[in-house]
């Protein structure tokens, strides 16, 4: 009886705490949301607006009216779907290979991958590789060079490490080779992890910006973030080492509402994907499938 009471208090306290954290998180976001629907002139009057006097969709209308918005959202969508799937296949294949302790050369390969996290050669050498492969100006230049990273491989390996080898043996007896084990047992077992990594990859591809500027010359193939960053970046801080030069140019200063609308518009697609992945984080997904 006594423990039940303390547990109740614990759960109540937990709920309160999480609600508080959510509120702290939500307030600035609420602000972003509200400003995106505020008349520019009302925003100019200043202060933090909690509730605009008039709601307007003018910023959203402008965004949708730009020539590139729809096309770049499609480009980003392509990157996020095709890219995420390819990344998951390539990364999980390698991570699974590295998680099998019997493998010859496992430690060396792992170490070599670790080194790629620590040492990065920089923008120009990367550009030259992409260029040598003839990928410049192709949308694949935004997917293939970003397929994986040492960080993801090693972390995913960590997830696979905890899968007992005994499961494999059973499958081997059933006549599966390693590719089959990976596909039929390991991947379904790691559904929560795959959902999490899928989300990471998807967000990474969705946020593609800098490599698109460098590798893609044709604006028709640009992802959404180039349009967005152009609205968000502070023109007085960008563009060249000597600020005075930029200060003297007549600049394009998008109103605050438009910036915020751009944020809302680019965040929503990811939020829509989220519930589909969320259910896989549920407790016990793994054991459920083991028992079958």
């Amino acid at each position: 009886m006594k423990r039940r009471a303390s547990e109740k208090i614990y759960y109540a306290a937990n709920t309160c705490l999480l609600s508080l954290i959510s509120l702290i998180t939500l307030f600035p976001l609420y602000y972003v949301f509200v400003v995106s629907f505020t008349e520019p002139s009302e925003f100019i009057r200043g202060g933090v607006i909690l509730f605009p006097r008039t709601w307007t969709t003018i910023s959203y209308e402008y965004l949708l009216s730009t020539r590139t918005f729809i096309r770049s959202i499609l480009n980003s969508g392509f990157l996020a779907t095709v890219g995420t799937l390819s990344s998951l296949i390539v990364t999980s294949g390698l991570a699974y290979m590295l998680s099998r302790k019997r493998l010859v050369g496992r430690r060396v390969i792992t170490l070599l991958i670790l080194l790629t996290i620590l040492f990065s050669p920089g923008m120009i050498p990367n550009y030259l590789v992409v260029r040598e492969l003839g990928l410049i100006n192709q949308i694949w230049a935004l997917i293939i060079p970003a397929l994986s990273s040492g960080w993801y491989v090693l972390l995913m390996k960590g997830f696979f490490d905890s899968i007992p080898e005994s499961l494999e043996e059973a499958a081997t007896i059933d006549g599966c080779n390693d590719v089959g084990i990976w596909l039929r047992i390991i991947l379904p077992l790691s559904l929560p992890a795959m959902a999490a990594f899928g989300l990471f990859f998807a967000v990474g591809y969705w946020n593609t910006y800098f490599s698109a500027v460098l590798y893609i010359n044709n604006p028709a193939k640009w992802p959404l973030q180039i349009l967005l960053q152009n609205l968000l970046v502070d023109p007085y801080m960008a563009g060249g080492s000597e600020g005075a030069y930029v200060g003297s140019e007549q600049l394009n200063l998008p109103p605050e509402g438009l910036k915020m609308a751009a944020i809302v518009m680019t965040t929503i697609p990811i939020l829509l994907v989220y519930p589909f992945l969320q259910k896989h984080f549920a407790k016990g997904a793994m054991v459920g499938s083991v028992k079958e």
Binding site: G93, Y96, P125, N126, P145, G150
Partner: peptide
Amino acid sequence: LYLLGLPGMLYFVVFKYAPMWG
């Protein structure tokens, strides 16, 4: 098993080690 890791290893060789000269 190696075959499974092959695309990934190729990726690391081409896109992480080839530019290392930098």
